[in-house]
Design a protein around this nucleic acid. Structure first.
Lengths: 342, 342
DNA sequence: CCGCCGATTCAAAGCGCTTTAAATTTTTCT
DNA sequence: AGAAAAATTTAAAGCGCTTTGAATCGGCGG
């Protein structure tokens, strides 16, 4: 059943039927009701392909997800972010076009989306220090929103969490407990967020007159194994080992916890741990037994909000850059305690 | 730059230019070269919306991912599967339309995709015991492929792993090592794959004259916390505790390992563990320190293959149902050893 | 030199919808 | 009642591409 047939069956023109269905005002109320009833009865759904061509709008938003590292890893954060964004897209009638490609193919993916008009805008996640994607989509003229931020971030729209403050505050929390040998198990420091986190950590230490020790700082992709190996290595230096860890993800924190256990130490007593928690749905820090002390900010909620903002940017391009900075909350769990004596 | 302009600039008709670009034979070679050069120089990309309307093909494949459980969890398997499938889609010129929706919205999502013609086919993942999605897409007339299988699985196309055999074999491996109290930390047994795995496990035990003990069998969403709590609970019954665990995912296996450690037991000595490993990129069992003994099958590779098969089904609908059963391999790691005496 | 054929190229229709400009009907006002 | 204004409906153009059916062109056999 298409528009033409539906219109014919009603003895109306396509124009009127189209308008009735799309809520235009120049249709008599009685007619609108009749059309809507007939459309429903016939199970009529406008053909998306035709509609997109006629309106020039794709009603689709593109997400290009780069595979990272030599093992082509998919950052597990993406699925929760997508779930959040997808919720809003569905509500607003947008489709989500997903492109998961090797780092080297990212530019091509964006260019293609822009050139063939299959999307109305794109979402950019996890920017690196000087991320080429931002100038790229700017020149392509694609509306976009960045989850995170980097470079000259006054000039575009983004939503980010206060990484610097969160890690500064977490560090201060540990310092207040008497810890002085605090290790940082950071994410990859090619990523902008990781750099901010390190600065927050370093600033907190320096403010208390402690010089950050490179031997206590690691940076890598945030897997469980990385957390384990990094922590095991540091803990092996018995007397000089860290008494606290500041970790960039729950996944890596699980690895650190394992290393602490393997070293015969007790978490929350001999060694403290604070992790950043993206509140991923399959890694619930609250529900699955005792919780880590954590700086928390839901990636899914961020996905929802990012989608809302991006749609607004697409619909009303005249609104200038939109920026939102979220403050993670620090929740105290069992994994922190006073520094052990000595 | 659109077709019309490009054709005009070449002094050719749209027809000829379109044909030249799409590799039709009735174009002189010299003309084709000239057209291709001009298209490249002008950076011409055909408008996807117009092409879709004209051809009636969406060149898009839909993935509908249901949020599961009360916490709307996103199964972490999806991102790796998507990465695999997306690789093939990109290569074959297909787009990936992703819809992440609540369980209750799944039907609507499929119906909409079918009615408005935004996809040429759909991928179905993780079927439940009697999954309503399969009859649904069948009546909708949408080409589809199931990753996994259930019900009357002769009548449609699927790709699955030999869950029964894998878990039977893993159980036998433990039995051969002298274990008799073997626990099963299974996935949610509303899922078809989990039922097959349990049957494999039960069959192996029964073949050796051991009656499966309900107290040694758990079923839930495969999180780390679930693995931890389930194992901790079983290990608390000192003398009668299991000496080996058969686990459905690396994530849960990490939880089981933690419970074993917390109970003061040594993995691979006091307690053995075999897990199924989907070879997710961010949970690398080989690289991140000592590896679990595991039945392995890459979900990403499955995604790739599923995409290939689905495209074939879409392009040549006359080919009957395609079915593929993959055999996981059993790789021996440090987490298994002979049953302790007593 | 003419008609026929295969090789190329082209004009125009069509995909199913939205939207502009015009036509028709209804209402309002004097 | 009649004209102007407002409300409603319609025909037709257009979105940018593919594809059908027809036209053009050069070469070949008779």
């Amino acid at each position: 059943m298409n528009l033409k047939e539906l219109a014919a069956s009603l003895g109306l023109s396509q124009t009127t039927v189209s308008r009735a269905l799309n809520g235009y005002p120049e249709v008599r109320e009685e007619t609108r009701l009749r059309v809507e009833a007939a459309a429903k009865a016939a199970g009529y759904q406008p053909n998306a392909r035709a509609r997109r061509l006629a309106t020039g709008r794709a009603m689709t938003i593109g997400h290009v997800i780069p595979l990272s590292g030599e093992s082509d890893m998919v950052n597990p954060i993406f699925s929760d972010f997508l779930a959040g964004a997808g919720e809003v897209y569905a509500r607003e009638g947008y489709d989500l076009l997903l492109s998961i490609v090797a780092e080297s193919e990212v530019e091509r993916a964006f260019r293609q989306m822009a050139a063939n008009g299959s999307v109305d805008g794109v979402m950019i996640q996890g920017p690196k220090r000087e991320d080429p994607r931002i100038p790229l989509v700017q020149t392509l003229g694609l509306p976009f929103l960045v989850h995170g931020r980097t470079g000259d971030y006054d000039s575009y729209s983004w939503l980010d969490i206060a990484n610097f403050r969160a890690f500064k505050r977490a560090s201060e929390f540990l310092l207040d407990l008497g810890h002085t040998r605090i290790a940082l198990i950071n994410g990859l420091e090619t990523m902008d967020f990781a750099i901010r986190r390190r600065k927050g950590y370093e600033t907190a230490l320096q403010d208390r007159g402690i010089a950050p020790d490179p031997a206590f700082m690691r940076s890598d992709t945030m897997t469980e194994g990385y957390g384990y190996l990094a922590a095991a290595d540091m803990l092996a230096r018995s007397a000089l080992r860290p008494t606290a860890f500041l970790v960039s993800s729950v996944m890596s924190a699980m690895g650190v916890r394992r290393a602490i256990g393997d070293a015969g130490l007790r978490l929350g007593k001999d060694v403290s741990l604070i992790t950043h928690d993206d509140v991923l749905s399959y890694l619930n820090n609250d529900r699955d037994g005792p919780a880590f002390t954590a700086t928390k900010s839901s990636v899914r909620a961020a996905g929802r909000r990012c989608a809302e903002i991006l749609i607004k940017i697409i619909v009303s391009p005249e609104t200038g850059p939109v920026q939102e900075l979220w403050e993670p909350e620090l929740t105290v769990g069992y994994s922190t305690g006073p520094a052990p004596p000595g």
